[in-house]
């Protein structure tokens, strides 16, 4: 495992925990898209079914379990514990526009036509677009709380570091996984506009608000 990959995993973990803590400490999930969080829970569930079939390393197993546990806890906080603070009126992205095309694509373009492999591929495609309901919500309300911005930034950094990890692996190991790379590129591009706003506004101590 190279440094890019490890730092990528850490920033992913940081993003997930940051969001959990934000909701827990403020006792509120205002401004957070429950739909994006459900999609991430689906992504982790579909991808990490290999926990039952394939042991890779203790690190790998622990991270997978933590990701799944945290993402389900987040969904539970939003839809159950702090339901009253959930901003459902602004969380109006139609998720079927993401789930249906990515499911169809997973059937058509995959490494192997087996149930686990199709689910893995589906999770890769779905992850690349799962943040869209959240970004849509931010654009609809025109602003995001600073912690929410940090969350989105850490999540974007994670996929960007994975891109460097893939360049590294291709160069030194001759390994590449085209499905993961193309989906990872799409995912990173979706964050670009947000990166710009984050650097020009949030890092200068301002709240992220979009021009009217």
């Amino acid at each position: 495992m190279n440094l890019f990959r490890f730092l990528g995993d850490l920033s992913h973990l940081l993003a997930i925990i940051l969001l959990l803590l934000k909701i827990w400490k403020s006792r509120s999930c205002a401004g957070i898209s429950g739909k994006s969080q459900v999609l991430f829970a689906v992504v982790f569930t579909a991808r990490y079914l290999d926990l039952f079939t394939n042991y890779i390393s203790l690190y790998n197993t622990c991270m997978k379990v933590v990701y799944i546990a945290c993402s389900f806890t987040t969904v539970w906080l939003i839809y159950s514990k702090f339901k009253a603070t959930y901003d459902g009126n602004h969380d109006t992205f139609r998720v079927e526009f993401l789930v249906v095309p990515t499911a169809i694509l997973a059937f058509l373009v995959n490494h192997d036509f087996t149930p686990l492999e199709i689910l893995w591929t589906f999770s890769i495609y779905l992850e690349s677009v799962a943040i869209l309901p959240q970004l849509f919500m931010v654009s609809k309300t025109g602003e995001a709380e600073t912690i929410t911005s940090h969350y989105l930034f850490a999540l974007g950094v994670y996929r960007t570091l994975y891109l460097f990890n893939w360049i590294w692996r291709y160069h030194f190991e001759g390994f590449f996984d085209l499905i993961a790379i193309v989906a990872g590129l799409v995912q990173t591009v979706l964050y670009c506009d947000f990166f710009y706003l984050y650097i020009t506004k949030v890092l200068k101590g301002k709240k992220l608000s979009l021009p009217a």
């Binding site: 992913h12 991808r47 490494h111």
Partner: peptide
Amino acid sequence: QDTILTHDEL
């Protein structure tokens, strides 16, 4: 390819 199907990344 077996290495791709192992999915050692998160």
